[in-house]
Simulated assay, not measured.
Amino acid sequence: MNLTQERILKVEAVVLEHHEWGEADRLLSLFTREHGRLRAVAKGVRRIRSRKAGHLEPFTRVALVLARGRDLWIVTQAETLEANLALHGDLEGIGYASYVVELLERLTYEEGPNPDLYRLLVETLRHLDENLDPPALILRYFELHLLDLAGFRPELKECVTCRRPIQPEDQYFSSALGGVLCPTCGKLEPSARPVSMNALRYLRHLQRSTYAEARRARPAPTVAGEMERLLQDYLSYILETRLNSPEFLRQVRQPLNPANHLPPTSSSESPL
């Protein structure tokens, strides 16, 4: 669909963020199921009597009617489909959801439908809101599948240099080369960093699994931390900058909350 020819749009969307616009309006960043990322203005939404305000908070899934304005879409109707209220209940919830939103915005472009990515966003925010699984698992799953959908899937099955299948032993990972290296090639690659066998096994499990299957993962806290650092370095290399929300999360999680990590299990219980 050519949006330049459309005057009215009916969309389902997640509100990513908003900014004050004029005296009483807000500029919304939306990720829609039908058209990908869009920007729209919610007129008068900052007034006390506005009926739309409660429907247009960040991380909310909404049904919208948009009308073509001079430069931007204008929200004419809004209905909440999924409020995700728990995400606004504390700083950690806001931090996790903000990280998801920031990463999505950095790896996507405005306009262009991507229903699989929309579904991943909706389900990730829902998992964070329900708080049934540790945030570490939810975020690693989101990162790996977002990278896949955005065209930056890291190679985790075979050495990116010699193309030999990865063996069950400690390996190396290179953000510059986009994947794992065997011990022989890794020692010769200046950009490579060591990665443990356990961290790589869990990363591969999350990458290839549905979320229902991924929930079985139970890495020890040290392994979970290694996975997080590896993916943060890879994302920073792709984006050519550090993200803002991880630093915010590190600050609000001090001292570290053990609930953010999955409890370890014996190797016999591993799904890998």
Rank of each mutant, 00 (worst) to 15 (best):
A40E: 01
G69E: 03
Q232G: 12
S267R: 11
G44D: 02
A224H: 06
V75T: 02
C185V: 00
A13D: 03
I166Y: 05
L107F: 11
Q5T: 05
A220L: 01
G69V: 06
L103M: 04
P154H: 09
N257Y: 03
E57V: 11
E105K: 03
G186V: 07
Y118F: 15
P134F: 14
Y141N: 03
C162S: 13
A176H: 06
T222K: 13
V62K: 05
I94G: 14
G54M: 08
L81F: 12
Y234L: 13
T222W: 05
T210L: 05
S266C: 09
V62N: 04
M1I: 11
L272C: 15
T108P: 02
L262T: 05
P134C: 14
L27E: 00
Y237M: 08
L149H: 07
L200T: 06
Q251H: 13
A136Y: 05
L85S: 15
G225K: 15
E169H: 11
S236K: 06
H127T: 15
H55G: 10
T32G: 01
E23S: 15
V41I: 12
P183V: 01
P263S: 06
R47K: 13
H127L: 12
I8N: 02
E240W: 00
D90I: 00
L206E: 00
Y99W: 09
G186R: 02
R140N: 07
G54N: 11
R163G: 12
R119F: 07
A150T: 10
D170N: 12
G54Y: 04
D116I: 07
A86M: 10
L137Q: 05
Y202C: 00
A78E: 07
K187H: 14
V180Y: 02
L231K: 12
S245Q: 13
V65C: 07
F152D: 11
L144A: 08
A67N: 09
G112D: 07
N257S: 08
N257Q: 07
G151M: 06
G179A: 03
N257M: 03
Q207I: 14
A67R: 12
E123N: 10
K10P: 08
A214M: 01
L64Y: 02
P154S: 05
E189M: 01
G36Y: 03
P113Q: 09
P255C: 02
K52E: 06
V41S: 07
E34I: 03
N2K: 13
R106G: 02
S236W: 00
R164C: 15
P135A: 10
Q77A: 10
V100L: 05
T4E: 10
S270G: 09
R37M: 01
T4G: 11
E105I: 03
S266M: 09
S98Q: 06
R163I: 11
Y234E: 07
S236H: 05
A83S: 13
A97E: 06
H261E: 09
F31R: 04
W21L: 04
A86N: 14
N131K: 15
R193D: 08
P221F: 02
R33Y: 07
N257K: 07
L9V: 00
W73A: 06
V65A: 06
F173T: 08
N84S: 09
R216T: 08
Q167G: 15
L188P: 05
N2E: 10
R164N: 14
R215E: 08
A217Q: 00
F152I: 04
P219A: 00
E240P: 08
R26P: 04
R70V: 03
L9E: 00
V62T: 05
L239G: 02
A67S: 09
